[in-house]
Structures are given as structure tokens and as C-alpha cells.
Design a protein around this nucleic acid. Structure first.
Lengths: 214, 214
DNA sequence: GAATTAATTGAACGTTCGTTTTATTATCTC
DNA sequence: GAGATAATAAAACGAACGTTCAATTAATTC
């Protein structure tokens, strides 16, 4: 046999990406074989090489698009205001929503970095650094404006990101807590952690503005 | 050749364990080959099987001993007092000190769980659950006593553990910050996060007790 | 110092891996 | 409907994998 009826390169590639994210998240990059991935897609292993020249190319593509998607999501969600508390709240909300929605891709991007070549690792880490820099800027502005109480901006940024990203380790959709409840709790923990002077969680929500004492 | 002069089973086994932790942390369990590990120890691959019947046995042994060590360290560091803030401070200090000291082993225990058989995975997760239960008990006591302000004990415990364990991702001994500085900052972030009513960091240190307003 | 035990080597086993090559068939173009 | 192109199957490649086994030598025992 050769080309199968109804075969479509676009659909196959999309199916490969989705299956790869799930398989790598579950088994790990090294443990997933190309034959396993092909079987999941319903295709022979050789067919995968029409879309990705090597296994590492596939991994890198998944990671790069995940990180670019994260930066794009933040650029879309970034509020216009200069208020550090409102910006921090938006950052937290975007981060948690994005990571819960893409748990598997996040797992891959965080756990499989060591399987990339040096050059590609550097490119992914640059994207990550750009994203983290945004948080540090918010924390620095808040600290300088006196609305946050922060010992060490860099260290606090890392602590917050680890805390927020950690959600994907234990969160399972449809269990005890909803995404909204988790986000609310993480927001208040974040605001307390940075020593926010006002109830910035409410202040960050325009519809609740009038109820907040500024 | 066969047995080499000066060869000693005890020393070889210890060398295997140490090399395995470092190699698995750096390359990942699946990516590390038994031949690579043997070369690191200065021995042939077959020699490894005198000490560990399979590669997975080696992994499991490293993980189990790491988790047992963590529980033992906490049992040794656990303070006698009932004061939640003091107990929380002790938990944070012990957690950070232990994890920084054993960065590589922690990496292995956190990242390679999926390479364990179901039965062994369960055993490791039980040890982890026992350790996390200790933190939840502290948080619950503090919330009930009114010295902590906590929305959700389980969620706060997970957030704190993720935040604290995250230290091993970016901390490198001998760089900008010392272990003591990191611990101090994490302690104050923790106390703010749980809404501790008093400066529990100082309260947890007997020598500073008299300076704290109770 | 002979017998026993401990520690290791070197070679080999069967399997699986990522990848390549070639052939074959479906779909599209005109 | 013929020709071009896209999408896949099937088979094969050499390399590397975890593991086993027999042989060999060092250290220990008596």
C-alpha cells in the first residue's frame, strides 16, 4: 500500500503535533518512540518524516510554538494601565489560564529542555527570559512606587513563576476546584506574597473598581 | 582481565549511586545508558548488575532513599513547639536547606517518576504525600488558631511546596545569593503568603523571642 | 599456600531505536 | 483522462540499548 484514501498533509501534521504533545507529556521525549507516535496518529513511522526532518525538530517545534504562544497571549492580555497591582493581577490570570489550558505542552516545554541541542536550547531560554522579564518589570515598578514590599525582585519573580506554573502538576479539570477558584486563590496569595498595599485583586477588575477605596 | 586490584564492592556501589544521580539529573533517566554510567564510574557495564538488578531498580533506590531522607530530615528538624508560625518557619528552612544540598537527587525524584513501575510509583508518592501532609497540618493549625489567613489549605500547601522546591531550578551555589539569604527571603515570602499575623520568622528563632511583641 | 569467595572483564544476545530508500497509490491540475 | 505531485507503506540500515554469561583475577579464609 501507499497513499491512503482521504489522506491530507495538513490534517496529518496537526494530528502528529497533538499526539506528540500528549505522548511526550505522558512518557517523556526519550521514552516516546517514533513508531509509537506514528501508531497513535494511525500512520507508519516513515510518514512522520514528511513533516518533521528529525525527532528533535519535532520537539523543538512544539516548544518554540508553545513559548511564542505564551508571549503572544501576554501581549494580548497586557493591560494599558501603569498600575503595578493591576498589571500583576493580569499577569497571574493570564499565566494560570494559559498553563492550565495547555498543561501537556507546558510539561513538555519545562521538562524536555535537556533534549535540545545547545543552539535550540538557547533560543527557547531566550523566549522564556523575555517572558519572565515582564514579571520582573512589574515587580520593580511596584516596589519603586511603594505599592509592593519586595526583598529581591529577581528571586520573587522566580518564586511566583514556580508557584503559578506548579498548578499544572496537581490541577485536573473537573475536580474539586474550578479554574476560576484556583485563579482567585492564587491571585490573593500572590498579592499577599508581594506585600501589595491595596486589595489589588479587586482593583485589577474594572467592574469592581467603584467598590475599592483608592 | 577480570577483578581489578584494589576493587571494593562498597566503594563501587557508592560511586555508582553518586554518578547515577548526577548523570540522570543532567541527561534524564531514559537518556542515560548503563554503559555511560559505567564509564563514569570507571567500570564495565556488566559490573553494575552486581549492585542493581535492573536500571529501574537503580532509579527506584535513588528515589526511595531521597524521599526517606527528606522525611528523616524533617523529623529531626521538627520543633517541639505548637506555635504554627515557628513550625512553618522550621518546615521552610528544612525544605530549602535539604533541597539545595541535594539538588540533583531532587531533580531525579521529581522528574523521573514516570519511569517507575506502577507499584513503585505508588510507594514514592506515598512518601511524598506523608511529607506534604505535615505542611498541611501546620497550615490548618495556624488557620484555626487565627494566626494564618488561608483560603484553601491544600492549595496553599501545594503552592508553597512548588515555590520552595523551585529553588533548585535557578539556585547555583556560590553565585549572587548565599543559602542563608535565599532562605531568609523565602521565609518572609512564605509568611506573607499565609498572612501570618506576627513576624513569625523572628518568632521562630528563640534567640530573637524577647524582641517580638506577642 | 590451597581453597573459597568477591569483583570485574569481554563478548555476545535479542530488541528496539531513529532514519532512509524505494515503490505505490490517491489526489490535483489542466 | 493524462501527467504531475502529494502522501503514504513496506522494508531495510547500522547503531545503540539493557541485560546475560562465562572466564578470569584479586582478596580473603583457614
Amino acid at each position: 500500500m501507499a497513499r491512503t484514501t482521504g489522506s491530507d498533509g495538513g490534517k496529518t501534521e496537526a494530528a502528529v503535533r497533538e499526539a506528540a504533545v500528549n505522548l511526550i507529556a505522558r512518557l517523556g521525549y526519550e521514552a516516546m518512540s517514533m513508531r509509537q507516535l506514528a501508531a497513535e496518529v494511525g500512520v507508519q513511522a516513515a510518514a512522520l518524516y514528511r513533516y518533521f526532518p528529525t525527532k528533535e525538530d519535532l520537539l523543538f517545534t512544539l516548544m518554540r510554538e508553545h513559548m511564542e504562544g505564551l508571549l503572544e497571549a501576554w501581549n494580548a492580555a497586557r493591560p494599558a494601565t501603569a498600575d503595578p497591582a493591576a498589571r500583576l493581577a493580569a499577569y497571574v490570570e493570564n499565566h494560570i489560564a494559559f498553563h492550565i489550558e495547555r498543561r501537556h505542552a507546558t510539561h513538555v516545554s519545562n521538562m524536555e529542555l535537556r533534549s535540545l541541542s545547545h543552539e535550540r536550547l538557547t533560543r527557547i531560554l531566550k523566549l522564556r527570559a523575555a517572558y519572565e522579564k515582564e514579571l520582573r518589570a512589574i515587580l520593580r515598578d511596584g516596589a519603586e512606587a511603594g505599592v509592593f514590599e519586595i526583598d529581591d525582585v529577581g528571586l520573587t519573580a522566580m518564586a511566583l513563576i514556580q508557584m503559578m506554573t506548579g498548578v499544572i502538576v496537581w490541577f485536573r479539570p473537573g475536580e474539586r476546584l474550578s479554574i476560576a477558584e484556583v485563579t482567585t486563590t492564587y491571585l490573593s496569595m500572590t498579592m499577599r506574597l508581594v506585600g501589595a498595599k491595596i486589595d489589588a485583586y479587586d482593583a485589577a477588575r474594572p467592574r469592581a473598581m467603584d467598590a475599592v477605596a483608592l
